[in-house]
Simulated scan of single mutants.
Amino acid sequence: MSNNAKGIDISYNQGNLIDYIDTNNTDLSFVICKASGGITIQDPDFAHNWETIPQKGFIRGAYHFYYTNDAPQSQADNFFNVVGNSFPLDALPPVVDFENGSIKTSDHAQIITDLLDFLDLLEQKYNRTPIIYTNQSTGDSYLNDARFAKYPLWVSNPTTAPSPKMPSTWPNWTIWQYSFNGNINGTDVDEDYFNGDLDDMKQFIQQSSNSM
């Protein structure tokens, strides 16, 4: 994967790591940071991370941890309150983190309907096609609906294999979280690949804008 743009994803758990890294002292091209979760969770380090990531030469991204027991509009409002009313055109599209910890209800059809509503709220607000973060197991259990295929996939599958295990809804991945065991300056980080090089990533960002 030597030609793939490489990145990490961070939250308050990584502390002030962003203050000590840049594109000159790492091989990273992008950093995705947590913004919010559910209807009340707001990452205390988001504002600093969000501002600092591009200053250090990285492409930035932001994610929301989705919970199925919270109303889509309320969750969207939480994300908007944290990120703001506009989304930078040079950033990766907003990310919706949907994993095993997201599942707090049992009505499968309602989970699908609500998540699609949430994705649509983000898309309408920012004119960007959001990214879905999930893994094979959760994706096959809850996102097995063709309507999700329009959203780019950030697949989580830590492995040394040459490609990740994929949920069946998607033919391919856009970002692959290939490791939970990265370490930068003594700080544990998740490691990610973009499915292409830095120029490919910039083109993907351009094409994710619905206003073009």
Rank of each mutant, 00 (worst) to 15 (best):
I132Q: 02
D120R: 05
Q124N: 14
Q110Y: 12
P130N: 07
A109Y: 13
Q124W: 05
H108P: 05
T129I: 15
I103N: 00
L115P: 13
D117N: 12
L115S: 05
P130G: 09
N100M: 02
D107E: 11
P94W: 09
K125Q: 15
K125P: 06
F98H: 02
L116E: 07
D97C: 10
L116W: 05
D97Y: 06
S106D: 13
L119D: 07
F98A: 04
V96W: 05
E123K: 05
F118A: 00
I103C: 10
P94M: 01
S102I: 05
V95Y: 03
K104A: 12
D107C: 09
L115Y: 01
L121I: 15
G101T: 02
D117Y: 04
V95S: 03
D117P: 05
L115D: 12
D97A: 06
D107S: 12
D120V: 03
I132N: 04
L119V: 07
V95A: 01
H108F: 08
D107P: 07
L115I: 13
T129S: 07
I111T: 12
E99A: 06
Y126S: 08
A109Q: 14
Y126F: 13
N127Q: 12
D117Q: 10
I131G: 00
T113Q: 15
V95N: 01
A109D: 14
D120S: 09
I111E: 13
K125G: 15
T113H: 13
L115N: 13
S106Y: 02
V96A: 13
L116K: 09
V95K: 04
R128Y: 11
L121W: 02
L116Y: 04
N127H: 12
T105Q: 01
P93V: 02
F118I: 04
Y126P: 03
L119Q: 01
G101E: 08
P94I: 01
D120K: 01
A109R: 11
R128F: 04
L116D: 09
R128N: 00
T129N: 13
P94K: 00
L122A: 03
I111L: 03
L122P: 01
I111M: 14
R128V: 12
D120L: 12
D120A: 06
K104P: 07
Y126V: 09
E123D: 10
Q110H: 12
Q110G: 06
V96T: 10
L115R: 07
L116T: 04
D97W: 08
A109S: 15
P93Y: 02
K125Y: 02
S106K: 06
V95C: 00
Y126L: 10
P130F: 06
L115C: 13
A109W: 03
Q124E: 02
Q124K: 14
I111A: 13
I132L: 06
F98P: 15
K125T: 12
F98M: 02
V95T: 11
D114I: 09
N127Y: 09
H108M: 04
I132Y: 07
Q110P: 09
H108E: 03
P93W: 05
A109C: 08
D114P: 10
Q124H: 08
L116N: 11
L116I: 14
F98N: 08
K104D: 05
P130A: 00
S106L: 07
D97I: 12
I111W: 11
G101Q: 10
V96R: 04
E123T: 11
D97P: 12
V96I: 14
D107K: 10
I131N: 04
Q124D: 09
S106N: 10
V95D: 03
L121C: 03
K125N: 04
Q124L: 09
D97E: 05
I111R: 06
